[in-house]
Amino acid sequence: MKVHHLILQAGISQAAIRFGCSTVSVQRLDPLVEPGSIPSAHVHQIVGGNAFNATMKGDIGEQASCTTCVYSEDFSNYWTAAMYFRHENGSYKRVPQYPNAQLGYEGQNDTTIKGGMTIYYTQKDFDDNGDKFITAFQPGFRMTVGSPTIDNKDGSKAGLRYTCLQSILTRGSETPDFPKQPCPAGIMAIHHFPACWNGKDLDSPDHQSHMYATTNPNGGFIESAPCPASHPVRMPQVAYETMWNTTGFNGMWPKDGSQPFFWSYNDNKGYGTHADYLFGWKGDSLQRVMNDSCMFHKCGSPGLQGTLKTQTVPEMNACAVKNTVEEDIDGWLEELPGQKMPMARAFTA
């Protein structure tokens, strides 16, 4: 009877969710790559649950008390490096984020979302699940994608891309490196994670080997091949879209035409872009929606009932994490935080 249920779900499930999360913290902490380090090597921008801290273990869904994501059962944490603009005089300024204009919640003014990112959980593509049962992540699961050590186009990974936004609704025209010219509406950074699991490890020493990517180089939301025998379990395809509002710097573009944007780990090529994911959905909520046939807002949004519970934008924005590291990350800085001399100290109280 149970086997029949799984086969049935494999045939009818085609769920995909896309939702906004406001910023929960911007600071130098990295509980995956540098657990316990206060501060970590570079600045991150983080969204999701308020359990985020320097050392994270166990079931995060049971540890957090609020989340900055629209789905109130999602206490996961999602993060990338922060982006900075380098002025011709050598100083740096953090680039602000703005909400995705393609999100439209019933009765909500989405422009009030505080920074953050758009998060996707899809299946084979936006039309079906490839007739495969989609297994949700388990408590304690974590992974990363990309690497800050990659500094050339040949090493860039499929699904890690940039879009030079001609308008806030621009999609497509993706490049593996930073745009070479000012973008009229900012830069969208895109991170697609692998979706094939080895079926046994919630993590691995490099935070990547327990997963296998079948990302299509020509379209991150379409798989290029089925999961291999080494990683046979199909999981949701997680992806991030971060809208970086670079427009305030367009008039400051260097006279020599050089690309002035840097990731916080001191990379102005863009090939080393990377992202981190730490699963924290409450109970069976993620599996429940992956078994459904809903798409995007029909899975639930403020003002519209669906499979998932939701919260309002003010409730999202009210959730936050107090900074563990005290340092200036937002003014005009002489150097990127952590990239030369240690300028930060941990709070002692």
Rank of each mutant, 00 (worst) to 15 (best):
K2H: 14
Q14S: 15
V26I: 15
V33I: 14
V47I: 11
N50Y: 03
A51D: 03
A51Y: 00
M56Q: 10
T67L: 07
Y84T: 02
H87F: 13
S91F: 04
V95I: 15
N109D: 15
D110E: 14
T111F: 06
G115P: 10
I119C: 06
Q123D: 09
Q123N: 11
K124Q: 14
D128R: 06
N129Y: 01
A136Q: 03
S147D: 15
R161W: 04
T163L: 05
E174M: 13
P179R: 12
P179Y: 10
Q181H: 08
M188Y: 09
K200P: 00
D201F: 00
D203F: 06
D206P: 10
Q208T: 08
H210G: 07
A213D: 14
N216H: 10
A225M: 10
P226E: 08
A229E: 11
H231A: 05
N250R: 01
N250F: 00
K255N: 12
G257S: 11
W263S: 10
W263A: 12
Y265C: 06
N268L: 07
Y271Q: 05
G272N: 04
F279E: 12
K282V: 14
G283N: 15
D284M: 05
S285T: 15
D292W: 07
C294K: 02
M295K: 12
F296S: 12
L308K: 12
P314K: 05
C319P: 05
V325T: 11
E326H: 09
I329C: 00
G331Y: 01
